[in-house]
Design a protein around this nucleic acid. Sequence first.
DNA 1: GCAATAGTGTCTCTCAGACAATATTGG
DNA 2: CCAATATTGTCTGAGAGACACTATTGC
Lengths: 237, 237
Amino acid sequence: MDESAYLASYDRSRYVAPLLSVDAVLFTYHDEQVKVLVVRRSRHPEQGKWALPGGFVDEDADDSLDDTVHRKIVEKTGVKAPYLEQLRTFGNSSRDKRGWSVTVVYTALIAHQSCAPLIETVSDAKWMAVSELADHELAFDHGMILQAAIARLRQKALYSIVPAFTLPDEFTLPELQRVHEALLGKPLEKKSFRRRIEQADLLIETGFKQSVSGRPATLYRLKPGAGEYTFLRNLEQ
Amino acid sequence: MDESAYLASYDRSRYVAPLLSVDAVLFTYHDEQVKVLVVRRSRHPEQGKWALPGGFVDEDADDSLDDTVHRKIVEKTGVKAPYLEQLRTFGNSSRDKRGWSVTVVYTALIAHQSCAPLIETVSDAKWMAVSELADHELAFDHGMILQAAIARLRQKALYSIVPAFTLPDEFTLPELQRVHEALLGKPLEKKSFRRRIEQADLLIETGFKQSVSGRPATLYRLKPGAGEYTFLRNLEQ
DNA sequence: GCAATAGTGTCTCTCAGACAATATTGG
DNA sequence: CCAATATTGTCTGAGAGACACTATTGC
């Protein structure tokens, strides 16, 4: 049999594959806190519990897994996340009561303001502060997945400015430093923080902005590709 | 309907999910070269082409995706790989002619000697030098996946001693340096290389060993957990 | 001027790069 | 002793940590 004959006779529905889903850990920064989007499950299993937003591949709508997760995030927030990266895939026989299941998990970052309009009007989605996660039990193994996502983002705070994607397009250096500090759970040296970003030439200056009080801070915008840059030397852990 | 009634009525075979497979990029070091294990496909599709070792989850044999990939590597090499880490999951509608497909890809490292007995006797698996990969077309998108795996391992050579898992249990520092140099494609400073490993206290000294000629090099063994250690500062790229 | 916040100057310390020097083996 | 390889000494420079200092705003 040649390949075209094989393909013509191939019937995918004959094979029972593990359940495959895609989930997103969507982070933002608001009110001095790093937060994560959780949605209430409207269906079985784990009905009523809070869970990570996610779902199944739609073979007609999605050309790739990235498409699937982008689509799911837009469904919940109304906008496309400016930073998206695969975290890891979790697959085993016990994580879903329906049987062997696999979920491809992404980390996404978004500015709070850009999705506030939609999130605030719905009751089945909300931002949960990372610091209060321990108080809530999530569906499936999503609590553990969330911990893995936080650990990875925390690492990125040490050697990149990826956390900037949790802020609006235009942001100040003190704001960015506060995001990093919230992730790392400790204060950072202002001078070191600014110096390395300045030397790496990752930002474009724009205008000005008043804080609540004191000297106004310079507003910056990320240069294209700034999210891919990694510093040669980490901040101290 | 409560959850147990839902689960009792749930029939997984009603849902057609994307094809799900697991693939491994298994690296080793031999004859001054970093090499990758490729296997010849015995079946359609892409019959006869070289591909990454991999396969499907066996829901009875495997409790997790890690189990699946471990099992597949043992099938091909006869032994369990001492280092295994998820690389990334690739999923889209075009990578497999059978339709929407997803593959969870792992990077694994193993000593050449530990699997030589089996590999050398079979004709459907062989080590391919990373440097000659451009000359061979691989099945599916495995060529691109391989490039991603190499890029990641190359990065790890800059901030970890993970490449040590391509060597036998006992190895010398000059040997390890040669692995890193092969990955990075350039010579490294002997002193810097040794100093950082010594300071991080990652190795245990054992006995001695003769090289082809000259002063014999000290043999070391990895301390438990040495693969997870990351240096704060990268080697220069 | 004062409080509050943004931003700078500058010293120290760690650690990678460079490369010369020394050590240990087999012939 | 010589060739070959392993291992160490040590100087330089980049860049993070520490912390004091200056700048700019609203009141």
